[in-house]
Design a protein around this nucleic acid. Sequence first.
DNA 1: ATTTATGCAAATCGTTTGCAAACCT
DNA 2: AGGTTTGCAAACGATTTGCATAAAT
Lengths: 160, 160
Amino acid sequence: MSSMSSTSVDASDLHANVALRLRDDDQRYTSGRRELVDLLVGADRPLTVAEVLERSDGLTQSSAYRNLNLLERAGVVLRVVTDDEFGRFELAEDLTGHHHHHLICTSCGLVEDFSVPDSIEDAVDAALHRVASRAGFSVDHHRMDLIGTCPACRSRSTAS
Amino acid sequence: MSSMSSTSVDASDLHANVALRLRDDDQRYTSGRRELVDLLVGADRPLTVAEVLERSDGLTQSSAYRNLNLLERAGVVLRVVTDDEFGRFELAEDLTGHHHHHLICTSCGLVEDFSVPDSIEDAVDAALHRVASRAGFSVDHHRMDLIGTCPACRSRSTAS
DNA sequence: ATTTATGCAAATCGTTTGCAAACCT
DNA sequence: AGGTTTGCAAACGATTTGCATAAAT
């Protein structure tokens, strides 16, 4: 089943893949971890721990942190860092099949997803791998983000 | 002299430009701030506050933090964030005339500079501006980093 | 003189951790 | 049972901040 799917991944496949990665890391797929994954699936942008807790039922702060870290180590979740004081978490791209980048607002901290044409993506990827091999780095992934001001903050600061 | 320089900037010009930006922000160019700028000029990669303090003479931790923040607000310094627990600081690119990106080692936190061909840079820039205008974001700058493992950490983990 | 910058020590706050109870298998 | 996960509260640590002193204009 689902052997024909190409770019998008349905929820059951996703959970199956998460379970696999956790098993590879000798970790259990507990209900709390599943809820975390579900919350991230439902979001269209990386979430802070505070946002995760707001949206969750019984999740506890310490368990959220612990399990997000554990999921990160297992390659299920990616931590997104910005200049603001909160870490953010999203599902790993190879689980969602959705390669994307971030618009980061320096004023309010908002992080929004976007993507660019494959042609650009491929050129960047090739260039980065070239650089990496020259420097002896092994590439895990790249990030290509846009730092600026979101529409809401723009208008908010347009008093004139 | 130096009126003909194109891509590189000499030290006196740089300090003059820093002074200008600070004046625009109603800030003084004190000796402590000048020392911070000199330390960053001398480094070939973003520095943590700890590294700044090691390399400095009389700089104090709180003043380093305060002044790096102030220099950031004035557009003199850029804060570089990674997954590790330390903020890093470098000179703003439009002061150094050196547009670059970062190789970030997830194992030891090392951050190294690199650059890519202008053709790639231009294509990325165009694509990002397209995305930004569609989303109503105003672009401050972009970042295009490479996350992976540095040579030292690679060999360290190659026990086999 | 008055404003601004500095140094020290204390406070802040997101995140991590110790430990005992609850939960698997 | 034996090991793991959870929740609570305490600890941690990078960064920020209050306040008194030292510059700077």
